[in-house]
Structure formats: structure tokens, C-alpha cells
């Protein structure tokens, strides 16, 4: 087993899972039926990607591991998702701002994963990129609408864009796992993703009449397993049944 490849797979899978888990909280509570349905579609895509990636991770871990064992029986510190994805949903604007930052990142990331030297990751990326392209377009359109909508929406979405900013840096900070992926052509050079991301984000924010945040301090730690206080509660809820009845099949 290649522990670094496993680690890289888990990061991708946990990003999809934790974001999917946050998005399902919206189901039944969206601002209008059409958008309730739209966000559930995105949640379904994220959870579908999470399953493929966690199945691949389970395969790497070998005997006795399954997607569910990874999702429901790992403790906090073994989850490797980016911190931005575990933040609470707050209001619809905050959720969409997070979606915009993350979808844009995911779009450039998965466009590169299409060329992955790892056949499994490549195959997953081929399926996922179609979904992610749609998400990125959808969330960017919403940022423009809210930024250039009413005075209230302009202020509210600007605040979300600002508040989320410090959680974006982690997506582009390389550690040994990212370097391993880059060197083995499994994943991209994050510097390139960062450059593309900044260009796209600047462009959309400008159309949206919003100001791009300038703060330099960035949070980090999620992809190494060092989380905010929020993840514990996400897992407590998500894992409750399987942990209460570990011998049961559902």
C-alpha cells in the first residue's frame, strides 16, 4: 500500500463527503423550491464523488475496508478535508460563497486530474468534471446575482466573501503529499491551480461588483487532520447510528 497515494485519495474523498454532508442540511430549507432542488443536486454529485473516492481508498487499505467503514468509523484527526468545507452553512449567501470558492478550485483541480497518472483517479475525474463544471458555473452566476442584486444582497455576500477568505489558502499550500502527487503526475502543481483560481475569482468578483479580499493570513491544517471545532459535531451526527450499533448492517 502506498500511504501517500492513500492520503491523497482520502483528501479528495473527504472534501467531497464533508461538503456533501453540509449541503444536505439545506434540503427542505432552501429559499425557493427550484433552488432547494438545485442544491440537492450538487449535494448528490458531491456524495457520489465521495463514494467513488472512498471506495478507491478502501480498496487501497485492503481487506475489511469499505466506503462506509471509512466514512463512519474514522475519528476526526483521520479526516483530511479542507477546513472551509466543515464551516457551518450560515445563510444561503455564505453557503454559495463557499461553494463559489471551492467549486472554482475543484474545477481547476479536476481539469488537471483528468491527466492523472493514476488510472482510478483519472477515471473518477472524468466522471466528476462534468458535474463540477456545472457547479462552478452555477455558483459563479449566483455570486454575480447577489453582488449586483439589491443593496442588501451586495453587503451580505461581500461579508461572506470576506469571512471565508482566510479559509481558502489551505487549498493551495503544498505539503509533502501534494509534492508527491505532483512529482508522480498523480495530481497537479498547486501553484498553477492557485494562479488560475485567483484569476477566475477576481474576474467573477469584478462582474459581481464585489471587492476581492486582501487579508493575507490564511488558516491551515485540515488536510493534515487538524480541524476546527465544527468537524467533531458533523461526525458525531453523521456517525451516530453505525457507531451505536457497530455490528448492524443497514
Amino acid at each position: 500500500m502506498d500511504t501517500k497515494l492513500l492520503e491523497y485519495t482520502l483528501r479528495l474523498g473527504d472534501n467531497a463527503l464533508i461538503l456533501g454532508q453540509r449541503l444536505v442540511e439545506w434540503c427542505g430549507h432552501g429559499p425557493v423550491l427550484e433552488q432547494d432542488i438545485a442544491l440537492s443536486n450538487i449535494a448528490l454529485d458531491q456524495l457520489g464523488q465521495a463514494r467513488m473516492l472512498l471506495q478507491y481508498a478502501a480498496e487501497q487499505k485492503g481487506e475489511g475496508f469499505t466506503e462506509d467503514k471509512l466514512a463512519f468509523f474514522r475519528p476526526e484527526e483521520e479526516f483530511k478535508n479542507a477546513l472551509i468545507l466543515e464551516l457551518p452553512n450560515e445563510d444561503w449567501g455564505f453557503t454559495l460563497a463557499r461553494q463559489f470558492y471551492f467549486d472554482t478550485y475543484n474545477y481547476f483541480l479536476y481539469s488537471e486530474l483528468l491527466k492523472s497518472s493514476d488510472e482510478n483517479i483519472k477515471a473518477i475525474a472524468q466522471k466528476a468534471i462534468k458535474e463540477i463544471s456545472y457547479h462552478a458555473q452555477w455558483s459563479a452566476e449566483w455570486i454575480i446575482r447577489l453582488g449586483d442584486g439589491t443593496e442588501e444582497s451586495h453587503h451580505r455576500i461581500q461579508k461572506s466573501i470576506d469571512d471565508l477568505w482566510e479559509w481558502t489558502g489551505e487549498l493551495f499550500t503544498k505539503d509533502e503529499i501534494d509534492l508527491f502527487a505532483e512529482n508522480d503526475n498523480i495530481g497537479p502543481n498547486l501553484d498553477v491551480i492557485k494562479e488560475n483560481w485567483h484569476e477566475k475569482v477576481s474576474q467573477i468578483l469584478e462582474i459581481a461588483t464585489l471587492k476581492k479580499p486582501e487579508a493575507e493570513w490564511m488558516q491551515s491544517g485540515g488536510k493534515q487532520g487538524s480541524h476546527t471545532e465544527y468537524l467533531g459535531f458533523i461526525l458525531a451526527e453523521m456517525q451516530s447510528l453505525p457507531r451505536m450499533y457497530p455490528e448492524a448492517n443497514w
Binding site: 463527503l17 454532508q21 444536505v24 442540511e25 434540503c27 427542505g28 432552501g30 423550491l33 432547494d36 432542488i37 440537492s40 443536486n41 449535494a43 448528490l44 456524495l47 457520489g48 465521495a50 463514494r51 472512498l54 466506503e67 462506509d68 466514512a71 463512519f72 451526527e237 453523521m238 451516530s240 447510528l241 453505525p242 448492524a248 443497514w250
Partner: peptide, 21 residues
């Protein structure tokens, strides 16, 4: 939805509740 005991059950339930919308 947040507590479905397997990922398969979670996506099926989500697709169902979404259908209701």
C-alpha cells in the same frame, strides 16, 4: 439525511426528498 447509516442510504434518501420538492 445527516444521520443516514450508510452512504448508499444517504444518497437514496436525499434523491427521494429532492423528488418531493
Amino acid at each position: 439525511l445527516t444521520r443516514a447509516p450508510s452512504l448508499r442510504r444517504k444518497v437514496a434518501l436525499l434523491a427521494k426528498v429532492q423528488d418531493e420538492a
